[in-house]
Amino acid sequence: MKEEFNIISNLIEENTRVLDVGCGNGDLMKFLQENKTKDIRGLEISKEKVQNCLSKGLTVIEGNAESDLKQFPKSSFDYVILSQTLQAFLNPELVINELLKVGKKVIVTIPNFGYWRVRLQLLFKGTMPVTENLPHEWYNTPNLHMCTIKDFYNFCSTMNIKIYKSIALKKSRISEINKSNLNYKNLDSHLGIFLIES
């Protein structure tokens, strides 16, 4: 968690305007507020989590990214962050497009379904993978559209989305993803972090 926050924080310039979509209990917001910028908002679907955020004095709106991002004007944030949430949407493509409208730049982090530990579970156990990062069973997971680092990489190129930076995380090891090491990073990383722009 901490590594992911650090990577995201390093991708963001100081005193910029940030929106955290699916901000949960506001941990990332709080982290960025202390380290990068005071001007940060959150959008979260769970009432309970929204109340937790507001209790901390964070500016958070209860809402659904799939329907409520429309209310923000075009390019009204310097950065929009979607941390490990993309896979939970009914329509990830639509959400990415909305994010790219609202934010000048977008940071998306993806729990990598191509990670070898995940692959091995399906290959050898023959059951849907349950890992530290993906702790749910198939019948109660909120994740509807799991993807791999490679899937997202290819998605961006198909959609003509510019990738500014792509970073792979394995435990606390950070490395850059590029075209030539894509297959390897897709196998050896549990998290992918992408800085993109339309």
Binding site: R17, K47, V50, Q51, C53, T59, V60, I61, Q71
Partner: peptide
């Protein structure tokens, strides 16, 4: 009200209480 405030980038939080 929230939408009107967001559309001008105002600083607004919102929750619907159960």
């Amino acid at each position: 009200i929230v939408i009107a405030l967001n559309s001008i980038g105002a600083d607004v939080g919102f929750v619907e209480i159960e």
